[in-house]
Design a protein around this nucleic acid. Structure first.
Lengths: 241, 241
DNA sequence: CGCTATGTTGATCCATATCAATAAGTGTGG
DNA sequence: CCACACTTATTGATATGGATCAACATAGCG
């Protein structure tokens, strides 16, 4: 199930997207190779817990295939913080700060993950200004993503969150009238800060605004009507899901 | 009310804390001076809106005296995202990304703010690896702060949020049994994601757990009892408010 | 095909918001 | 220094968004 210690050549031949990630694109070849030398590539089945909140950050993770869900728990409750799709790195902040993970991560689908020892990342980070700048860009974008998520939670009710989520999803799928939810509804519910029951009812309510739903399928009859309810703003709804 | 274009010498003589900020401590003297040459120092009365969400990020801001509140609005609703106390920089992410502000900021108290043109910050950021690394550290910490805030909002009910807030505040004030709320209750309520009425009732409910409140004054009769209700965890409650 | 997890729908409950009235500060100008 | 205006905080009554509980339907999957 796992292949250990792949060289930079192997990883970049199989996954040139890694070298092309904004995080790595500008760094020196020698540094990139140093990172990849210690890296693992592993394939995981669905529902595997990759990291657990509170653990020390041993590896920077990069999803190259599949899907990963970041979640957090407290006092018996659990919520979804975000889902990460290829090709993207996660837990960059914990890695560079050498701090414990604040969120857990589990595979949602069968996934291929590159694991880079955190110490290597911190070494290259200290030695390669281009990498340091790339980490800043990445982190700043992540920061802004969480801020948007928080704004949404605090300023919108559940129906508004759902409506805006669908509009963002539509934009991501190129503006198509029909598309599929990328994750299970119960996970979507947790992400949106509501219960599965309420998500069901929410989708029902949106019928009055031209939205149809069957299984994962969503049809937006009138983006105009939906937008009237959702009132999207770039300061919350641009880019990230 | 404002003094323009202070040199590095003036600013660092009057506010050595700026040079000592983690953000600037390690950068080259020449670069620090370049930043300070274009910097403004301004004094603002309370309730002045310093930046407005959506505006382009013209300046990196540093509170050297007073208190600033970051807030966000949507569709007629408004919420407090965080409060910033001296000496700390805010809106670093927007500045380095050259992206619009996601949050607005207003002074809560009469405040002295250093404004550094964003372009200067981005220039030094590109030229000074030590600064770039410092920005990463700063951003990673901010990121983790918002993640904690979001976890708290999604996983705790309002009474639990309040109880944990009081415990964090107690820790910040050195563990004293008595201390004052640092911000108005209505702002605290918005920060905690509740209404002022509910905050009042919440403080009342906490009497059953040994907490007394009169005006801004909080007395924690038994941290033990409060902790039993609050169930704090470092993964949410360490460090930031 | 049947088992198990996921999703739906309805009934009810509860945490929190909203509305309304009062009290207590806080600041201002005479 | 007081009186007035105005904001903030408290308290009670009520409304409601969303959670919970329960029953059933449906869809994956071995």
């Amino acid at each position: 199930m796992s292949i250990k210690g792949l060289g930079a050549d192997v990883l970049s031949r199989d996954f040139p997207e890694i070298r092309e990630l904004p995080l790595f694109r500008e760094i020196e070849e020698a540094h990139f190779e140093a990172l990849m030398r210690g890296a693992y590539l592993q394939t995981f089945p669905p529902q595997v817990e990759l990291i657990r909140e509170g653990d020390p950050s041993d590896f920077l993770h990069i999803v190259v295939e599949g899907m990963v869900e970041m979640f957090a728990a407290w006092n018996g409750r659990e919520t979804v913080m975000e889902t990460v799709s290829p090709v993207a790195a996660f837990i960059v902040a914990a890695t560079v700060r050498d701090a414990p993970y604040l969120m857990s991560a589990r595979t949602v689908l069968r996934s291929r993950i590159v694991l880079i020892p955190s110490q290597d990342v911190r070494n290259v980070f200290a030695a390669d200004p281009a990498f340091a700048r790339a980490v800043v860009t990445e982190l700043a974008e992540r920061y802004r993503g969480v801020v948007k998520h928080t704004k949404e939670l605090k300023l919108r009710n559940s129906l508004e969150r759902l409506a805006n989520y669908l509009l963002r999803l539509q934009t991501l799928t190129g503006g198509a009238e029909e598309f599929d939810l990328p994750i299970e509804k119960r996970r979507l519910a947790a992400y949106l800060g509501m219960t599965p029951e309420n998500l069901s009812r929410g989708l029902r309510s949106l019928e009055a605004h031209g939205v149809t739903n069957d299984g994962a399928r969503i049809v937006i009859g009138s983006a105009e009507a939906l937008r009237k309810l959702a009132r999207p703003t770039p300061l919350i709804d641009d880019t990230s899901l």
